[in-house]
């Protein structure tokens, strides 16, 4: 069984995001890390590798910023890695899916896993669009996967619905599943894993090598970035912790009458 995991390097959650005078994102200032949702996807693939001897390829599209995330996937136990090099993030989901599909097509994975969304842009589209490009079935919001065996023709998928309800479905392979946090407990790479990852294959390719003379046109363009309009903030309590807590308890008791 062949499994591919799509990973994205996202802007660090704590990052301070600044716009230039022209309203452009100051990318050079930003640091990137592996998208949290994708971490769970990698773990799920590695578990399948352990159970069914699956080959796991981690794939990422982006600048040099993604290499660290690919290395992490290898250190966790992925078999090999593919880096599709671009000069910039492809902010458009359809373009990203088109390029990823060409990189995966030759490998013919039985199962492709990806995070449900990216932590920074949160479009939650690439998995589904990729499945369409490859002609695969697809399910999003996966919180459980049962792979019956190495030659599985279908997988049982537990999808999470709103309100924490679940829908169990059977999806015929080949398929793309998008993975939600909490499906497993991602492992930390061990020293041994990190050492072993250095000998693993990390293939670099460009969109041009995949047949894209120019990058696919965006279906959604970002025309403007701005700071969200300020909203009314909470009444912020002042002073040291003792004073803040005393004042809070007074307010809750005397003004709000909830204590």
């Amino acid at each position: 069984m062949r499994i591919a995991v799509c990973m994205k390097a996202v802007v660090e959650p704590e990052a301070r995001i600044e716009l230039s005078a022209a309203g452009e994102l100051q990318r050079s200032e930003l640091r990137y890390e592996l998208n949290e949702y994708d971490l769970y996807a990698v773990e799920e693939a590695i578990r399948a590798n352990e159970a069914h001897d699956a080959e796991v390829t981690v794939v990422s599209l982006g600048t040099e910023d993604v290499v660290q995330s690919l290395r992490k996937g290898l250190a966790m136990g992925a078999t090999n890695a593919v880096h599709i090099k671009t000069d910039d993030d492809l902010a458009d989901s359809a373009a990203s899916a088109a390029v990823l599909a060409e990189a995966l097509r030759a490998r013919q994975p039985d199962l492709v896993l990806a995070g449900v969304e990216s932590d920074d842009l949160g479009g939650s589209q690439v998995g589904v669009l990729l499945a369409e490009r490859l002609g695969y079935n697809c399910a999003t919001m996966t919180i459980g996967v049962e792979i019956p065996g190495p030659d599985a023709k279908e997988v049982k998928v537990r999808r999470e619905l709103e309100g924490g309800n679940y829908l169990d479905i059977e999806v015929a392979l080949p398929a793309v599943l998008t993975i939600q946090t909490g499906i497993n407990e991602p492992r930390y790479p061990t020293l041994k894993g990190i050492m072993a990852s250095k000998r693993k294959e990390l293939v670099e390719m460009t969109p041009a090598e995949l047949g894209f003379g120019q990058l696919p046109a965006a279906r959604v363009e970002t025309v403007e970035l701005s700071y969200p309009p300020p909203r009314e903030l909470a009444r912020m309590l002042e002073g040291g912790p003792d004073e803040m807590v005393a004042e809070l308890l007074r307010l809750l008791r005397e003004e709000e009458k909830v204590l």
Partner: peptide, 25 residues
């Protein structure tokens, strides 16, 4: 709606079939 049911599964699928852009959430 950007829901787990329709928004996440159907939205991108339909956009792909209609070859159009989907603006999320």
């Amino acid at each position: 709606l950007h829901s787990h049911f329709l928004g996440r599964d159907l939205g991108p699928l339909l956009a792909s079939r209609l070859e159009t852009g989907l603006i999320s959430d």
